[in-house]
Simulated assay, not measured.
Amino acid sequence: MVRVLFVCLGNICRSPMAEAVMRHLAAAEQLPYAIEVDSAGTGDWHLGHQPHEGTRKVLDEHGVSYEGMAARLVKSADYEDFQYIVCMDRNNLRDVRGIFGGAAGSKVFTFMELLPQRGVLDVPDPYYDGNFDYVYELVEAGCKALLERIKADMARA
């Protein structure tokens, strides 16, 4: 079982969108039992809340389920529990490294490292600008790239 954790600030916009999209893609490739996906936030403002209405709307438009998802905090144990820890921006990466006591390694990286051809360093936070469609575009492309990386890593294992 490969475990993936997506991390953003409040765990209601970007990281749950990535969690839902990655689950959807894994199921479409008949891999839902080989890949477990979760998301978490570095801030505690929205603990227990479902994804933001903008995230839910764009996921609904694309037929992607977010059922049962609720915001939670990143915890230090996540470092051992997940093989891929994908931070939606560089601030999240810095915060996650702090939570992990400075440990990071190759399993902790930013989401946009999956899409270097885009020339974008961070997934913008749609909580502030409302551009959920653009974030979905980035998330879908990045999740596809991550899924290919995971499949290649699984084939080598």
Rank of each mutant, 00 (worst) to 15 (best):
N91S: 14
F6W: 06
D125W: 09
L115F: 11
Y79P: 03
G101S: 10
N11C: 05
T55Q: 08
E19W: 04
V64S: 08
T55W: 09
E19F: 02
V4Y: 00
Q83H: 08
A145V: 04
V123H: 00
F100V: 02
A141D: 14
A18Q: 06
A141T: 02
S15T: 06
R90L: 09
E148L: 05
V2W: 10
V139P: 00
V58W: 01
G105N: 03
P124W: 06
D153W: 01
D133Q: 14
V74Y: 13
T110F: 01
E67P: 02
C87A: 01
D78F: 14
R56E: 15
G10P: 04
V123Y: 00
L9W: 05
N91L: 07
G43T: 06
K151G: 00
Y84M: 01
E67L: 09
V58R: 03
R14E: 06
L31V: 05
M17V: 03
V21M: 01
M17L: 13
F109K: 06
L138D: 01
R90H: 14
Q30N: 15
L115P: 12
V139C: 08
V120N: 05
I85C: 01
A28W: 05
T55P: 04
C8S: 14
A28L: 14
L47Y: 03
E36I: 07
Y79I: 05
T55E: 10
P124R: 08
I150Y: 06
R94C: 09
G102W: 03
V21L: 08
R3K: 15
V96L: 03
C87D: 07
H24K: 04
E148W: 00
F100I: 08
R90T: 12
E140S: 01
P126C: 04
P126L: 05
D95P: 01
E61D: 15
A77N: 13
D122C: 08
E113C: 01
L5E: 04
F100R: 02
C143R: 00
G48W: 01
I150V: 14
A152S: 12
Y127L: 02
L146W: 06
F109M: 09
T55V: 10
R156Y: 04
D125Q: 12
V123T: 07
R156P: 00
K57D: 14
P16Y: 11
N92C: 13
E53S: 15
C143A: 06
F111P: 07
G43I: 04
I35S: 11
V2S: 09
K151R: 15
L5D: 02
H24M: 07
G130D: 12
A145L: 07
L47N: 04
Q50Y: 10
N92T: 04
N131K: 13
A18L: 08
M112T: 04
V120F: 03
R72P: 10
Y84D: 09
D44S: 15
A152W: 02
L59M: 07
L114W: 05
A157P: 05
V58G: 02
V139T: 15
D133T: 13
V74D: 13
G119P: 09
S15A: 09
V120D: 09
Q50A: 15
Y128V: 07
A27P: 09
C8L: 11
I150R: 05
V64Q: 03
Y33A: 13
A40G: 06
A104N: 03
Y128C: 10
M112N: 10
E19V: 02
E36S: 14
P32C: 02
